[in-house]
């Protein structure tokens, strides 16, 4: 296990380095400097600013200096908000986004998993069709449409739930979490249904039934572990999608999270902010993919040997 983990960690390093390098140079070749405003800035001021942001150095030295900062956990200052650092913005936004993502994932796994398992128990009956049809709608309905529609229905027409905010009014966390989680609930429902269907037809399930175990025990103790494997493998990539989804959900519900900061930085062309958050989010995504691989291997020893043997 340790060896497997080490190999996967080593594989993640070039990916993260590639992200940093590509992002850094992309942002640097972007047309227009960060201080090209309409107002003419005194040359001395401009020089001082450039020195502060190290723009006076040759490009490659800027790059190595940036790598050095990153190694110390410093994502750099913001271009647009002097005095604020990317670290501060991440520190402010991350807990909110993490909480939102956690709730969404919780909703997705519990509802999606449950729906998938229920559907798999009686395939090709209404018990299968209804959850799967709902899942199809969940997959085809984009987050940026579902969110406003839910707000329109529960927030404006029925007036049951607040239409925006995060942690200001009780219940305002519900709609964003559902909006973000819905598509993943749908995917997880499909994955767990397919996984369970495959597992439930295996010999060892027949054995479990033959030795007289009650059906719920067969499903819960023997079926779930194998049947939910595809779901675990999906959670890593889902995390990346959740982050992207949080861009939309945080914009719709005006939640002060990382996703909204990122979109705002993109609009403001706050290059250091974009650079910093991209590097941060990418590293997070790569690490989550790693985690999901490790978890999948832990649940399925066959995979572990595959990886160990290949490397």
């Amino acid at each position: 296990m340790g060896r497997f983990l080490a190999i996967r960690l080593l594989q993640a390093i070039p990916v993260i380095l590639a992200v940093i390098t590509v992002t850094f140079f992309l942002v640097r070749v972007a047309p227009g400097g960060p201080f090209d405003s309409e107002k003419a800035v005194l040359p001395e001021v401009k020089a001082a600013l450039e020195a502060q942001y190290r723009l006076d150095l040759p490009l490659f030295q800027q790059y190595t200096a940036y790598l050095g900062d990153l190694a110390q956990g410093d994502f750099g200052p913001s271009f647009k908000y002097p005095g604020r650092s990317v670290n501060e913005l991440i520190g402010a936004g991350l807990p909110v986004t993490a909480e939102l993502g956690l709730y969404a994932l919780l909703i997705a796994t519990v509802i999606g998993g449950l729906a998938g398992v229920i559907a798999s128990l009686r395939p090709n009956t209404p018990q299968d069709y209804i959850p799967m049809a709902l899942a199809m709608i969940g997959i085809c309905m984009p987050t940026f449409l579902l969110g406003p529609l839910l707000v329109l229905l529960f927030g404006i027409e029925l007036e049951w739930l607040p239409v925006s905010g995060w942690g200001d009014i009780p219940g305002d966390k519900l709609l964003p979490s559902i909006t973000l989680g819905a598509a993943y609930a749908a995917y997880i429902a499909r994955l767990s249904r397919a996984g369970m269907l495959e597992v439930l037809s295996q010999d060892y399930i027949r054995t479990a039934r033959a030795k007289g175990l009650p059906e719920w025990q067969v499903v819960v103790k023997h079926g779930l572990r194998g049947g939910l494997l595809p779901v675990v493998a999906f959670l890593g990539p889902a995390f990346a999608g959740l982050l992207a989804g949080s861009f939309v959900v945080e914009t719709i519900f005006q939640i002060p999270g990382l996703g909204r900061f990122y979109v705002q930085a993109a609009f403001n062309r706050d290059y250091t902010m974009i650079l910093g958050t991209t590097v941060f989010l990418s590293t997070l995504i790569v690490l989550f993919n790693l985690l999901s691989d490790v978890l999948a291997a832990w649940l399925n020893p066959r995979l572990r040997h595959q990886f160990g043997g290949k490397a």
Binding site: T23, L26, V29, A240, F247, A266, T278, S282
Partner: peptide, 18 residues
């Protein structure tokens, strides 16, 4: 390697930069 990159973020980045 490209698979592991968070592309949604990269597209946003590309649209901003260019």
């Amino acid at each position: 390697i490209l698979y592991a990159l968070p592309f949604m973020i990269f597209i946003v980045l590309l649209m901003v930069v260019f």
